[in-house]
Design a protein around this nucleic acid. Structure first.
Lengths: 220, 220
DNA sequence: AAGTATTGTTAGATATATCTAACTTTTATA
DNA sequence: TATAAAAGTTAGATATATCTAACAATACTT
């Protein structure tokens, strides 16, 4: 049986080892930072997770998943993202309010619940933030790699997919000359509201996080 | 902040003090039985709940709620029953599978979630088992008193309300001559599947628990 | 390559929530 | 009413998950 706490560690590890840089390992301090805990606490838990064969790790070495551990982490992420989708699509929450609630809901234990929820939501592939929802078989929807909103200042990327396909949004993109295949450079990122200053075809535009959330991109 | 565990104790206390006999107090052993814990553990927790002013109780005395404690218990029950309603009405769970999942969901902390869920479900007054869902102001829908399925062998009661109003169910009741106001005597209760042998207008019928769940009755 | 900074580990303390075993009080009954 | 049964309490142990403070190993930097 995996405790809520253990699941939190596995999810955090997942965030670290699934980073854009393709790292397959992480360290004690990084985990502690992500979980807002002290390294000593993390170290304790690492021993426990290793004993349960959920992670590979040796003293002073780096941390990585076992297959079993990754499977559990993927399920937690799946549940988190399905619940976020539920909160936004069905209950009418705004996308910025759902995280804390989904953090709680992701620990509800019931395979049947997860599958029924998935069905109820229409088997969504991406959550309201544009993150891919891992499937029950452990696979992940092929993602063009990232959403524009996850890019950092200086990144250059290509638009691969538009999430919101409403007429209003597509018309807006048209005005900025953004299409699938368009190259976008991130000139600046405003930390206050996560809006981005981008360059497209030599012209600068400011786009909101909401807009950037709806644009899937890959590095180029 | 109230822990999940504390909520479990308050909910169990609620079940004891809101029993049909109208008791307003309960004992250590009764709580321990209900929670499948040892009396010593309960005693420990009682001290804590008293210190938090959630219950009234003195050494060797009986246990009862403070207003604050009752309010929390009611909220937990409200959440439990709303989630059960969600699981059955929206996700298509059968009524007998939802309890364990609702036991987990009832601890999710978010006032906004509860109110949005209530709205999403259409402000239901009764859960799939026919139990009244406490309202956010702490009031409880007036209940005809009980569902037929909660009656015991020898009880005599009057049908006050039909929960499932589908044509199929109403036609079924018609065949048994059961209407609102009909007097029903419970001749026997089959523990295997909780079906009831009832007498209506001098005739004996066997009704399933599902049927009995859908008939609200009051003692006569 | 030496010294320093970063990273990671250990030991021991704390808080929660449980248990067992022994004990005390209250209640029921002979 | 004396005694036995039931109900309730206490003390001390265990497990989980956290912390602080001190220590050890690795990595960076000059």
């Amino acid at each position: 049986m995996i405790s809520h706490t253990e699941e939190d560690y596995l999810k955090a590890l997942f965030r670290l080892v699934s980073g854009k840089q393709g790292k397959q390992e992480a360290g004690t301090n990084a985990l502690a930072d992500l979980l807002s805990l002290k390294p000593a606490s993390v170290n304790n838990m690492l021993k426990k997770l290793r004993k349960k064969e959920l992670i590979d790790y040796e003293k002073y070495g780096k941390i990585s998943f076992t297959d079993k551990g990754r499977q559990i982490a993927l399920l937690v992420v799946r549940k988190h993202r399905l619940w976020e989708t539920f909160l936004v699509d069905k209950l009418g929450f705004s996308w910025d309010r759902v995280h804390d609630i989904a953090e709680q809901l992701e620990h509800i234990r019931s395979d049947e619940l997860v599958e029924k929820l998935d069905w109820f939501l229409g088997h969504p592939e991406y959550d309201p933030h544009g993150d891919p929802i891992p499937r029950s078989d452990g696979s992940t929807p092929t993602t063009p790699s990232a959403v524009l909103s996850s890019m950092q200042k200086g990144d250059v990327c290509k638009v691969m997919m538009v999430k919101d396909t409403s007429a209003a949004f597509l018309q807006y993109l048209e005005r900025l000359s953004i299409h699938v295949g368009t190259c976008v450079s991130v000139m600046d990122k405003v930390s206050f509201d996560n809006s981005l200053v981008i360059e497209v075809d030599g012209k600068h535009h400011t786009v909101s996080q909401k807009v950037a959330d709806n644009l899937y991109v890959s590095y180029c």
